[in-house]
């Protein structure tokens, strides 16, 4: 699971952010304890605790004394808005480079995006209305 160059705690934090964005973890959901995390992923418990501390300081998770650690209210929206800012540079630019290598022109790309994006957004819109 841990394949990046970043410290393992950052990769754990990123995995939890991903679970919140995908909806696998919702607002108010309890996350595993650092001990459970450490046992499950076979890492040092201090590393798991560091990941949790990072997410708590970002306001993504909140610790409730004696109860456990929970996903903060508003965490999904907070993550989405910060992701939007880096989306084009981090995700779209590499895609454009790949398309260029394959000889896929801007027109083809635009046409594809318009058709698939409208399918995808109708699906997520209903999701968000339910939330």
């Amino acid at each position: 699971m841990f394949e990046g160059r970043e410290p393992i705690y950052q990769q754990i934090a990123e995995a939890i952010r991903g679970e919140i964005l995908s909806g696998a973890l919702n607002e108010g959901d309890q996350v595993m304890s650092t001990t459970q995390y450490a046992s499950t992923y076979r890492i040092n418990p201090a590393t798991a605790a560091k990941a949790f501390a990072a997410l708590e300081s970002e306001g993504i998770l909140r610790k409730q004394r004696g109860m456990g650690t929970f996903v903060s209210d508003g965490a999904p929206e907070q993550l989405r808005s910060s992701r939007r800012q880096s989306f084009f540079a981090e995700r779209v630019d590499p895609l454009l480079r790949d398309a260029d290598v394959l000889g896929i022109g801007a027109d083809d790309l635009a046409r594809y995006l318009l058709t698939s994006a409208s399918d995808a957004s109708s699906a997520t819109n209903t999701d968000q209305n339910n939330a």
């Binding site: 001990t35 450490a38 046992s39 076979r42 040092n44 418990p45």
Partner: peptide, 9 residues
């Protein structure tokens, strides 16, 4: 290793 992690925690 699993026991070490659990007991250390």
């Amino acid at each position: 290793y699993d026991e070490l992690i659990a007991d250390f925690a």
